[in-house]
Design a protein around this nucleic acid. Structure first.
Length: 307
DNA sequence: AACTACTCCAACCGCTGTTCT
DNA sequence: GAGAACAGCGGTTGGAGTAGT
């Protein structure tokens, strides 16, 4: 990456002096022809490199530093609509560049979605192969065959039930949020209104972005409301009233996954499994498990045998 | 302290679409 | 209309920094 190219033009990181020269030149003369900029400014760079440096780093109003959770959520939402249209996504984030958005997606957001059991490409729940992969890697297949084993395993740790219950509840809320994303966005933000011609209209300009909007006929049915969060949950943490998906849903998941309560690899595996089970639409199974857990907790608190 | 693995991000590359001649 | 020049975009690379062993 370092050194000069075959034309003798410099490559690699820009020095502060080069930055200063480029900024001075553009402020005085503009950049109508990028190809001529380096020669006129006195830089030993190609025009393309100058343009990139200016647009991604030197131009005014560039916002630097960490992305806020709101920005991250917006990127996820927009990516669900547009795919890898980084420049289009970046236009909705003032001060952010397409390169920054792309880097954030590739380095963090993509992984985060996978962790949540969501395919980062389709933004739909991960499908069977992924589930089987997970099941093969872990020993949960045995647990599925005998739900009582789940309970027995969970009872080995006092916070187990609370942790799993919370993870399942968050998974469910996230799925609800995702399932309702296009409608929700359109209703909240007029710039994201969806026309009837399978195109989303953005902003006041005539720009329209043809995207693969899911056919309404094939849109997954709304996820049924989950039973109220069990009161058995957690003596050690504040009980959150999580009944509706909201913009805080993903933040809650982040906090949950990053926090101590889900930090053990053992629990993260269970939570991953719970997410994927939920993703596959196994809410009956979840309800069953939750009910089983509640019963188990009741049995335990009354000193009864699980079997 | 040394090494390795991993993450982040600036910059490059190659392709595509648009504008100009 | 055709080809050249240019700008913009998305994918990829590689160096720097950091955490873990």
């Amino acid at each position: 990456m370092k050194g000069n190219d075959k034309n003798g033009l410099k490559k690699g990181p820009w020095t502060p002096e080069e930055d200063r020269i480029l900024v001075d030149y553009i402020q005085k003369h503009g950049h109508s022809k990028w190809k001529s900029v380096p020669a006129l400014a006195g830089l030993n760079r190609c025009g393309k490199s100058c343009r990139l440096r200016w647009t991604n780093y030197l131009r005014p109003n560039i916002k630097r530093g960490n992305f806020s959770s709101e920005e991250e959520q917006l990127i996820i939402d927009l990516h669900a609509l547009m795919g890898n249209k980084w420049s289009a996504i970046a236009r909705h984030l003032p001060g952010r560049t397409d390169n920054e958005v792309k880097n954030l997606w590739n380095s963090r957001l993509k992984r985060k979605l996978i962790q949540m059991g969501i395919d980062p490409i389709t933004h739909e729940p991960l499908t069977d192969p992924r589930l089987h992969q997970l099941l093969a890697a872990a020993s949960f297949s045995n647990l599925i065959n005998n739900p009582l084993d789940i309970i027995n395993a969970l009872m080995l740790q006092s916070d187990a039930v609370a942790t799993l219950a919370k993870s399942l509840h968050l998974s469910h809320n996230m799925l609800q949020a995702l399932a309702s994303t296009p409608t929700t966005m359109a209703s909240q933000d007029p710039t994201k209104a969806c026309s009837t011609s399978n195109e989303y209209q953005f902003g006041s300009s005539s720009e329209s972005l043809p995207v693969n909007v899911p056919n309404l006929d094939t849109t997954p049915q709304p996820i049924p409301p989950m039973a109220p969060r069990p009161t058995i949950v957690d003596n050690h943490h504040e009980t959150n009233n999580i009944t509706n998906p909201s913009s805080t849903t993903f933040q809650e998941w982040d906090d949950f996954m990053d926090g101590g309560e889900a930090s053990e690899p053992y629990w993260r595996d269970i939570i991953d499994f719970g997410s994927i089970l939920a993703s596959l639409g196994g809410f009956e199974a979840l309800t069953y498990s939750m009910g089983g857990i509640a019963r188990a907790r009741h049995h335990l608190s009354h000193g009864l045998s699980l079997s």
